[in-house]
Simulated scan of single mutants.
Amino acid sequence: MAQVLKEDIREKILQSALEEFYEKGFTGAVMRSIAGRARIPTGLIYSYYPGKEVLFEEVLRPVRYNWKSVLIEGAGRHSGTFERLNKREMDCIRNLLEHRKEFIILMDKSGNTKFSNEKENFILEIEQHLKCLMQHNGKYDETYIHIVVDNFVEGLLQVMYHCNEKEHALLTMEKLIQMYLYGIGL
């Protein structure tokens, strides 16, 4: 029975930390506030997580991807048309929608951490992926690709911020993806 209680406490800490980091970002989050949300003594958090950075990493675990591997794995699986993403890419999008707060924290609220450049890295990986896909026709404009990808990532974040219902978010993402894939000329 004690083991169940330990997992319950760990889950309370993670949920409280998620809300604290979502509301205040990494820099503004305070362990004392996380403990208060979890209704536990502050010192108990340190029995599970040695510091705020480790707790932050654990909160972000569901949305930490090697973006390059997702894109590379999916590159050969398109059926000749690019009106939809492949299964691996859509599974990734579904997971991000399932963990939208974590994704928002990772992209917009991770200043002063090792993840502070994650949004820029995500944009860069997509840009490089699109350049590889578009090299076959020899016509692509790096500035144009950067603008499209930057706007796509911002659109993805807007869906995360504003679509609280999962099905609505998924439908909106599918529309956004189709618009960008048609618009970039793939």
Rank of each mutant, 00 (worst) to 15 (best):
I147E: 15
G74A: 09
A35I: 01
E53R: 11
F82Q: 00
R88C: 01
T81Y: 14
N121P: 00
D108L: 10
T113P: 08
I177A: 10
N117V: 01
Y46C: 07
E127C: 04
N137F: 14
L14R: 02
I126H: 01
N137M: 08
R10H: 11
T42G: 07
G25H: 11
E118A: 05
F26T: 02
F21I: 02
V159W: 03
K12E: 08
F115D: 02
R94T: 05
E98H: 12
T27L: 07
N121D: 10
L156Q: 01
G28Y: 15
C132R: 10
M107L: 10
C92N: 03
L186G: 08
E58R: 11
F21L: 04
E58L: 02
A35F: 04
N117Q: 12
G111F: 09
E102F: 04
E125T: 06
K114F: 04
E120S: 08
T81H: 14
G25N: 10
A35P: 02
K52D: 12
Q178I: 01
D150E: 15
I40M: 04
N112E: 12
E120Q: 12
R10N: 09
A169E: 02
K68A: 13
P41Q: 08
Y65S: 03
R32W: 01
T27N: 10
N137H: 14
I104H: 01
Q15H: 08
Y22V: 02
